[in-house]
Simulated assay, not measured.
Amino acid sequence: MIELVGISKSFTGKKGSIHALKNVSISVKKGEIYGVIGYSGAGKSTLIRCVNLLEKPDSGSVIVNNVDLTKLSPGKLRVARGKIGMIFQGFNLLKTATVYENIALPLKLTGLSKQEVEEKVTRYLKIVGLENKHHSYPSELSGGQKQRVAIARALAHEPEILLSDEATSALDPDTTEAILELLLKINRELGITILLITHEMNVIQKICDRVAVMENGEVIEEGKTKDIFTSPKHATTKRFVNSLFSHNLPDEILSTLKETGHVVSLSFFGKASGEPALALVSKKFDVYPNILSGSITQLKDESFGQLLIHLKGDFTEIQKAVSFLKQQQVLVEGVDIDEGKNQRVS
């Protein structure tokens, strides 16, 4: 559906050239929700604007539906952009126009009849849950309602792809949750492929099938959301995951615990998150598990839990217990089972 191949983009400023993107390549499959996450200055905003050529890359290919947009004439590019909707953090609504007019005006410019415009506006306002706000003005709406209008405006052109440029960053947590649920609904019911950028890991966790992590204009890690959560490789990726699961312990407490056993992190996915694996450990082995911290969260399609525990006992018994946990499809980290060396969990 979307193939970005070797995308590079630089900007010239007072201090010289700024390399916003450096040979970036990602592939987004039809019908999936793909997230790009990174801190400020990572290059993610520039990347998403290259998809519809709001920013033209210095080099590389932007392939959408097997067509390289960088090679299209201006006329054909306008047609191709018609299948790519976009929503922004700032909503970009006309303040002096009603909700109806904000959605209808772009449609009228495409040459649709009054009846066709009315049918589309009515349909998509209903989809976003604002069927009673036709005559309201943006100043009369909440932030979440404004974003719903922006989403309806993008959907009214019936795109195959929806680009989301930090669409929830200006919203409170409850409203963010509602907008994410709406994006999930749009993806599932309308089959629209969604590419979004964010700096919030909870957005990735909630709705994304796959994710790319960016830093300094490069993709430093990419994969299924599940895999990124269970085994992040890069330090920046670990920081994002730990923003949801913080299990840091003070050094003095960790040192004390290590004197009588091992501190390990357990990760549970899907059915494993609901199994009493830890309870069985204390019954099967001469090991006493003590839960130090833990949480369970919901990814797009399955639950994911993490526990930080202290396993008190002889190392041989701990070794058996850890092997048992792994057999129960529990990911165990923080202790070297082969050599008996402790490793700090962070």
Rank of each mutant, 00 (worst) to 15 (best):
F240Q: 07
E221M: 02
Y137L: 13
T12W: 12
K224L: 15
A321V: 02
A42D: 09
E3S: 05
V281R: 09
L254K: 03
A272D: 12
K15V: 09
I37K: 03
E221A: 03
G191V: 05
G144C: 08
A20H: 04
E189W: 03
Y137I: 12
S293W: 01
L53I: 01
E200W: 04
G261N: 09
E222D: 09
E218T: 14
P289H: 09
S346R: 12
I228K: 12
I2V: 11
I318Y: 12
P138G: 07
G223E: 09
I151M: 02
H310S: 13
K185C: 00
V28I: 11
T96D: 13
V64N: 05
R188N: 02
F285T: 01
S267Y: 13
Q329V: 04
N66T: 04
T176G: 11
G41K: 03
H134A: 01
P57D: 06
L171M: 00
V62M: 08
G85K: 05
L163M: 01
E160D: 15
K206W: 06
I161R: 08
A80P: 00
L53R: 13
G129E: 00
V5I: 14
F91I: 04
K83F: 08
L155D: 10
T316P: 03
N23E: 13
K283G: 01
L299D: 04
V345S: 00
S246F: 06
G270D: 15
S231E: 14
G270R: 08
V99F: 01
T46M: 02
V287K: 13
H262W: 03
K258S: 13
L249N: 10
A272K: 03
K108S: 10
M86Y: 12
L155N: 12
L21H: 05
N290L: 13
T237M: 10
G313L: 08
L112E: 08
E302W: 04
G35L: 14
R344F: 06
I161H: 08
H234T: 14
V128K: 10
S267M: 15
T46Q: 03
L195Q: 01
S40F: 08
N290V: 13
F285H: 01
K120T: 06
G334S: 11
Y137E: 11
G82N: 15
D227V: 03
L180P: 01
A277R: 10
M1Q: 12
A279G: 10
